[in-house]
C-alpha cells in the first residue's frame, strides 16, 4: 500500500517536472504582461538542443542544459520582438512559435531519431526516494520565484509592468526591456523543461517528444492563478493523472483513447472551473496587450 503510494508520487513528480518548469517560465513572462502560447515549441527546441549536445562525442550535460536554455530563449526572442517591438497579437504569435518550434525540432531532429543516450542525467536516491535533479531544481525554483515576485524590488518592477505598464513607464521603468527579459527567461525555462524530457525522462529523442505538455503548462498557469507555489500542486495534479493513465492503460476495460484524451479534457474542465470561480480576475491587468506609450 505504502509502496504504491510512493511509486505514484515519484511518477507524478517526474511527469510533473516539465509541467512545473514550463509553467514557472510562463508565470514569469505573464506576470510581466506577455502571454506565451509558444511554450510547446520552446520546449521542443530545448529538448532537441539538449539531446544534440549530449549525444555528441564528449557531450557535457551541463552544456546540454545550457544549450536547451539558449534554444528556448532564442525562440522566445522572436516572440518578444514580434509582440513587444512590433506589437503583434501575443496569442497568435505564440501559436506561430509553437508551430515553428515543434516543426523545426522535428525537422532538424530527424538525424537523432532512435539514437541512444548513454550519459543520461543520473537520478538521485534520497532515502529510497528516486528523484531527478531536474525535479529538485524545479521545486526549489518555484520557491525562489515566489520569493522573487513577492519580496524583491525587481519582482515588484516586473509585476508593475504586467499590471500597469503606463504607471511603470511614468516611474522610469523601461517596460520593453523588462518584458524582453521576462519573455527570454520564460523561454529558457521552457527549454530546461524540454532538456528534462530528452536527458532524463525519456533519455532519447523522438518527434513530438513534448506531446502537448507545453499546452498543458500554459493552461496550468491560469489554473494556479499565476502563483509559483500553487504551480507545484497543479503540476503534481496533472502528474498523478498521467500516472493513472500509465497504470490503467491496458489493465482495464476502458478504451485507451479515453486515457490519451483525458489530460486535454481535464484542461478544459479546469479552465472552465477557473472561469466560473472568476479566477481570470487574478490575471495581471496588462496581460496580453502590447504597451504603446501614450495609448490607453
Amino acid at each position: 500500500m505504502d509502496n504504491v503510494f510512493v511509486e505514484a508520487l515519484v511518477r507524478a513528480l517526474a511527469v510533473g517536472t516539465p509541467l512545473l518548469l514550463a509553467s514557472l517560465g510562463a508565470i514569469l513572462n505573464e506576470r510581466g504582461g506577455v502571454v506565451n502560447l509558444g511554450v510547446e515549441g520552446m520546449m521542443a527546441v530545448g529538448a532537441l538542443a539538449a539531446f544534440a549536445v549530449a549525444v555528441a562525442p564528449g557531450g557535457n550535460l551541463w552544456v546540454a542544459v545550457l544549450a536547451a536554455m539558449a534554444a528556448g530563449a532564442l525562440l522566445a526572442s522572436l516572440h518578444a520582438f514580434a509582440t513587444v517591438t512590433l506589437r503583434a497579437n501575443q496569442f497568435v504569435s505564440g501559436l506561430a512559435l509553437a508551430l515553428l518550434g515543434t516543426g523545426a525540432a522535428g525537422l532538424l531532429g530527424k538525424r537523432y531519431e532512435g539514437a541512444p543516450l548513454f550519459n543520461k542525467v543520473p537520478d538521485w536516491n534520497l532515502a529510497g526516494f528516486v528523484i531527478s535533479p531536474f525535479t529538485v531544481f524545479a521545486l526549489l525554483l518555484a520557491a525562489a520565484l515566489a520569493f522573487y515576485l513577492n519580496s524583491t524590488r525587481s519582482g515588484l518592477t516586473l509585476r508593475s509592468v504586467g499590471e500597469n505598464p503606463a504607471a511603470a513607464d511614468v516611474l522610469g521603468v523601461n517596460v520593453g526591456r523588462v518584458r524582453y527579459a521576462a519573455v527570454l527567461a520564460g523561454g529558457a525555462l521552457a527549454g530546461i523543461a524540454g532538456a528534462f524530457l530528452t536527458l532524463s525522462y525519456r533519455a532519447s529523442w523522438a518527434d513530438n517528444t513534448t506531446a502537448g505538455l507545453g499546452w498543458i503548462a500554459v493552461a496550468l498557469v491560469i489554473f494556479v492563478g499565476w502563483r509559483p507555489l500553487r504551480a507545484i500542486l497543479g503540476a503534481l495534479f496533472f502528474g498523478v493523472l498521467y500516472y493513472l493513465q500509465f497504470r490503467l492503460q491496458g489493465n482495464s476495460p476502458i478504451p485507451t483513447e479515453v486515457f490519451s484524451a483525458m489530460p486535454f479534457v481535464l484542461v478544459l474542465v479546469v479552465l472552465a472551473l477557473a472561469g466560473l470561480r472568476g479566477q481570470q480576475g487574478d490575471a495581471p491587468a496588462g496581460l496580453g496587450r502590447a504597451y504603446v506609450r501614450g495609448e490607453r
Binding site: 508551430l99 515553428l100 518550434g101 516543426g103
Partner: peptide
C-alpha cells in the same frame, strides 16, 4: 519529415 509544413506555417504566420 512532413514537419516541414509546420515550419512553413509557423514562420509565415509569425
Amino acid at each position: 519529415p512532413f514537419r516541414v509544413v509546420d515550419v512553413f506555417s509557423g514562420v509565415i504566420l509569425l
